[in-house]
Design a binder for these strands. Structure first.
Lengths: 332, 332
DNA sequence: TCCAGTTGCGCAAACGGTTGCTCAACTAGT
DNA sequence: ACTAGTTGAGCAACCGTTTGCGCAACTGGA
């Protein structure tokens, strides 16, 4: 292998021009004659010259890296969603010659973010999950670095991309209500996660629109472990809930397990619906009615927005992506 | 916010010393007096000076980044495993002040890897899945960049970290055989993935050790989609298999679905066992006997090995991590 | 023919660190 | 007192780009 990497000076010397000229031929910026330009481009093509990105970074204060912050305390079942999102991000980034620096952070932990930023290793940040009073957002607002937040809609002056969880949950709930099932149990997760708040809002609104009142005793929030979910299911059954609405697939998976252990038939005795058709539920019998979000699209849109910001373009500061309600056996 | 970032020259000037001295105080390399060193360290602490990593990279040809190559064509169910592994990698990396550049690549696709490497954006690479005749490995062998491969044991001269899939599968199979179930169906995935080959080997060896011969008609390989899995399950039942051994959780999940649809009772009519207790199977009723691998440990060990290589230490070129067989209801 | 405007290109100074070499001052051994 | 070895520190080159500015050559209108 050609050990030493060929530099811009080598190219310049070989062609009898200056480094400036070579640089300009490549970037297309600055004044340069067309013929010289072509001569340079041909040479670097033929001799496989690759500019040293590090040197470029130093000169331009630009890294061509973006940071993706992934929650480290996720329920494992959320993973496919984030992963899909990252794939979307990656595809857009790659096209623009950007790379992804992955930072795995606990809720409100900014040490990882801080290192990456103060080391100037990235040009921008994408947050994949955000909380009420999110420390990471507060931190980023203090720095002058572009970023976009997904999973959030409650901050002002922050670029936000998200699925319309509120409408989605409202629509799903409305469908249940239209079947004349008014005793609906809601099994929800961490209230500080903003998407969960939006979903709850949608749920409430659906009842309001139907002119029905929700039974507060059937609303179970902040379910974070197996036993709390089991307990919620028990109570829901006791109170004769006709339908169990799970606000995420991790909760649904455990709820299904509990129902199966209790020999409850779905959908005969109780209906079940969930969010996001993740792999956890995908092969369930009966198949589960759920909302379908395109996580990859979310990644694509978020990344385009961020790169737009980095390149100094005007970008929308808030975007809501659509969703789909897919009816399956569990609510028949 | 103090807009302009403070540089090494600023520090030097403020202290009335040279850049060299400041640099030496920080790195600890080179000759420097103890008192001066402390004076410098105190100053940079008090004034929150952070060296510019990009400049450092340029001077040292070292990026303090490592690339983690994640398969892009995974079955979604493998995800928790990779994710856990990445968390392990990240923890080790962070401690040594390294960051992770994520590259999502299709099987045998090296374009992403090539960009990252020829752009000199990373000091080393970790491959999370490897194939027979893996193009990514071939590519990396051609470059002089440290890397470690997980999920592989068939290359020579390549640093390899993996769980002992062969022994694991042998042990799991042996347990089944000890219960006098000799009609065991094997449902396996892509044969080009090396871990799958090792598992198959373990399966065969268990039969050999028990002095029994395997029924080749009960071995189903390269199952890549639902219908092929369903078909394999049907055939296995037809041939009166007493136990179905799934070589990965994605296959198992679909197999369970098929069994449930066919109203087959587990474990009464057929036993089931799988690999890795991923979230997909975690909440199944009945609970599924499976092998448990510590993915995070894999990440930790792989990353330590890579960083060792980068820092020029002598590191083991092959390590096999242990596993656990966890017996649950599905094989009772 | 003259002059202003344009075009093509190069010089050299950044960007912010690291490091080989030099050198004065100090230590210690004879 | 003389020399050899050690220690602390700085000079300046270097890593490989980008870019503001200057300059010569060329263009075309009056």
């Amino acid at each position: 292998m050609g050990n030493k990497n060929i530099t811009i000076s080598d190219v310049a010397e070989a062609l009898g021009v200056s480094k400036t000229t070579v640089s300009r031929a490549i970037s297309g910026k600055g004044r340069i004659g067309e013929v010289t330009k072509q001569r340079v481009l041909e040479y670097i093509e033929a001799n496989d010259y690759k500019p040293n990105v590090i040197a470029k970074s130093l000169a331009q204060s630009k890294t061509y890296n973006i940071c993706v912050v992934m929650p480290g305390d996720y329920a494992l079942v959320d993973l496919p969603f984030f992963q899909e999102a990252i794939i979307g991000i990656q595809q857009v980034a790659a096209k623009m010659e950007y790379d992804i620096l992955l930072s795995i952070c606990q809720q409100d932990d900014i040490t990882g973010l801080e290192r990456v930023i103060s080391n100037r290793k990235v040009d921008g940040v994408i947050l994949l999950r955000t909380f009420e009073g999110d420390k990471q957002i507060e931190f980023l607002k203090g720095k002058s670095i572009p970023f976009v937040a997904t999973g959030s809609t409650s901050y002002s002056g922050v670029k936000q991309i998200d699925h319309d969880h509120e409408s989605a949950c409202r629509e799903l709930t409305s469908i249940v209500l239209m079947n004349n099932h008014f005793k609906v149990a809601l099994l929800g997760g961490n209230e500080r996660i903003i998407v969960n708040k939006r979903r709850l809002k949608g749920f409430m609104d659906a009842f309001a629109m139907a002119g029905k009142s929700v039974d507060p005793e059937l609303i179970f929030l902040n379910l974070e472990n197996r036993s709390s979910i089991n307990h919620a299911v028990e109570e829901a059954l006791e109170k004769k809930a006709e339908c169990i609405l799970c606000m995420d697939d991790g909760i649904c998976s455990q709820a299904l397990r509990k129902l199966r252990q209790s020999h409850i038939k779905i959908p005969a005795e109780v209906k079940v619906a969930s969010f996001y058709n993740s792999s956890v539920l995908q092969n369930n019998v009966p198949s589960i009615t759920s909302l379908v979000f395109d996580a990859k699209e979310l990644g694509v849109v978020a990344c385009k927005n961020l790169l737009g910001q980095i390149e100094g373009e005007e970008v929308p500061s808030k975007m809501l992506l659509s969703y789909e309600v897919v009816l399956k056996e569990s609510t028949k």
